[in-house]
């Protein structure tokens, strides 16, 4: 049996609208510090979380809002946390990068790659205490160069742990292009540990759901871990307020100033090397802007196209989601 696309669409839309509300509050200064959104990753989260049952665990990275929203955590509690309230889901102690829900067996961390070992531990506990339950680790392609993550792949294979390793690959490692700092091929790398590795279009929620089903079934039957490589694009870049996306004169000066100052500075690299550096920076900015404005491979648009025949039903879901998010925001701010 295939996925219920309507349900998945609703989940993805909930996450998107929620994070749009978060963006608004962050811009208004109501939320402090960094803000890493999962906009663009909704199909990956939805296609995987749909398979989870009571007793399954999740280890999230610093971009963990979508899986939490879809797992059924109270939205206003998440928002209260972001607002720094003592009655937030982590009592105002964690914030968006350090979200925990014990009842959902879900933990997050801002240390890149740390979801791997934690998920392996969750899976080990499941093996002992909750046979048939599994753990999911969500991380980005940047984390694929972190030793602890690769070590946890080996651990999970060696101990046949019920883990689904989910790499959300947007081809960036913070603000560095992954290909410039990564050797080989990620799929082959995962396979070399002795686990099945599947590559999927992370904008296609049905593809994610189908691949996740294989991995989840395998884990539930105690056959060990699976690796999913889901390609995606995040239009907001690494985090909100990323310099090239600010659209202000001040930020332009902030970016161009050091370059203009350094380009002609006496002593240093050859003109050729300086031009090459300038070229790399220009290309990074270009890529960032393309991903922001091209609207290419938007997962929400992708699934909506599949469902567009039933306009009335789409409208109904969209209205319900708008209302849910609006009420959650109102509750959180009241």
């Amino acid at each position: 049996m295939g996925p219920d696309l309507w349900l998945l669409y609703r989940q993805m839309l909930r996450s998107r609208r929620f994070e749009e509300a978060v963006t608004d509050l962050w811009q208004k200064g109501r939320i402090s510090g960094e803000m890493h959104l999962g906009i663009g990753e909704e199909a990956i989260a939805a296609g995987i979380v749909a398979h989870l049952q009571d007793g399954d665990a999740m280890a999230l990275d610093h971009r963990g809002t979508p899986p939490l929203v879809m797992r059924g955590v109270d939205l206003s509690l998440i928002l209260r946390e972001f607002l720094g309230c003592a009655d937030g889901i982590c009592c105002g102690m964690g914030g968006h990068m350090h979200l925990f829900s014990r009842e959902h067996l879900t933990a997050s961390s801002g240390i890149v790659g740390s979801a791997g070992p934690i998920a392996a531990g969750f899976a080990l506990a499941a093996q002992h205490l909750r046979p048939g339950n599994i753990a999911v680790a969500f991380f980005g392609d940047g984390a694929m160069n972190q030793g602890m993550l690769l070590e946890s792949f080996n651990l999970a294979v060696a101990w046949k742990l019920p883990v689904l390793f989910v790499c959300k690959d947007n081809e960036w490692a913070i603000v560095t292009r992954s290909q410039h700092v990564t050797g080989g091929n990620l799929l082959e790398r995962a396979r070399s540990f002795g686990m099945p590795a599947l590559e999927i279009d992370g904008a296609d929620v049905e593809a994610v759901w189908n691949a996740a089903k294989q991995g989840v079934d395998r884990a539930r039957k105690n056959n060990g871990p699976t690796f999913l490589l889901a390609r995606c694009i995040r239009p907001e870049g690494h985090f909100l307020g990323y310099l090239p996306l600010r659209r202000s004169l001040e930020s332009m000066i902030g970016m161009v100033g050091p370059i203009m100052h350094s380009l002609p500075a006496r002593k240093g690299a050859s003109p050729g090397e300086r031009i090459a550096s300038l070229g790399s920076i220009t290309s990074l900015i270009g890529r960032t802007l393309t991903e922001k404005y091209s609207k290419r491979r938007d997962p929400i648009h992708h699934v909506r196209q599949r469902l567009r025949g039933e306009k009335a039903r789409l409208n109904e879901i969209e209205k319900e989601v708008e209302k849910e998010i609006q009420q959650a925001v109102e509750r959180a701010l009241s």
Binding site: V112, V175, T182, A269, E273
Partner: peptide
Amino acid sequence: EDVHGLRTGLFVRFGEKRVRPAPISEAA
């Protein structure tokens, strides 16, 4: 990590060989 972005001036002036972005692999 991200030294080309955080130290743009040094990256432009001294080139990528001397100001080199690293993977997220602190241990390495």
